[in-house]
Amino acid sequence: MNITVCIKQVPDTETRIKLNADSTWIDTTGIKWIVSSYDEFAIEEALRLRDKNPGSTVTVLSAGPLRVVDAIRNALAMGADNGIHIELPESADNNMAAKALAGALKKEAKVDVVFTGKEAIDDGAAQTSQLIAEYLDFPHVTVVLGAEYGPESIKCRREVEGGAIEVVEAQYPVLIAAQKGLNEPRYASLPNIMKAKKKEVKVLKMADVGVSESDQKIRIKSLQLPPPKQAGKKIAGDAATQAQELVRLLHEEAKVV
C-alpha cells in the first residue's frame, strides 16, 4: 500500500504567545516547535498499517517554512520511510496548505490512504484534512477512534457529541483524520533518530504543486491577546457560607443560574 501522512508543525502547548510588532502574526522567536498532537496518532496509525501490509511504504508530507523539515524528521525517526517538504509562506491559510499537500500527493504513485490529525492545535481550524480529501476527490472520515482496514473499504468509528460513535464505511482511496485514542504513538528509537538525520527530504516549491498566491482565501488582519481578566471575587467563610454566597452571586449578580 502507498500510505501517506500529512503533518503540521506547531508551537509547543506551553508556549507563551507574543505578537509581532504590527500585531499581524505571532512573534516566533524562541518558540519550541513540535509535531501537532493529533498528527502523532496519524503517524502511528500509518506505521502500523504499513507493518501489517508487507511491501507498503509511509511517506510523510508537511507544508510550510523551512523549519517544518524538523517535524518531518521526527516522523522519519518514528519509522516513516520518506519525507516531502512543500515550501509555503508562514501565513498560508488552510486552503493553500491543503492544495499544496493534495498537489504533492497527486505527483506520487497512486495513494491508498492519507492520514492526518483531526485538527492542528495552533489554529484549531479542523479544515485542512477535509480540503485535502476534496482536492483529491477522496472520501474522508474525521475524528477517528478506531479503524478496520478491509480489502475494498475502511470501517471507522468516529466520535461525535455526547460520546456517540458513528460507524462509517468509506471506499479506498480514503483520508482518515485521527482522534486521540486511535492508538498509542511510539517514541522514536535512537537508531531511527540517527537514520532519520541522514534520510533525504524531497523539496517541492509552490509552482511544483500548482499553488499560487490566489489560493489564499482567508487572511489574519490582526491578532490581539485576550484582554486580561479583571480580578475575580474571592468568597470567604466556611464551606456552607461560601456555597450559599456563591449561589446568590451566580443567581443575582451574574444571572447565570
Binding site: Q216, I218, I220, S222, L223
Partner: peptide, 16 residues
C-alpha cells in the same frame, strides 16, 4: 476566532 488555543484572538478577513 480564537487561535493558539485561545491564547490570541484573530480578526479574519476573506480574500476574493
Amino acid at each position: 476566532r480564537p487561535v493558539y488555543a485561545g491564547k490570541a484572538l484573530a480578526e479574519v478577513e476573506f480574500v476574493g
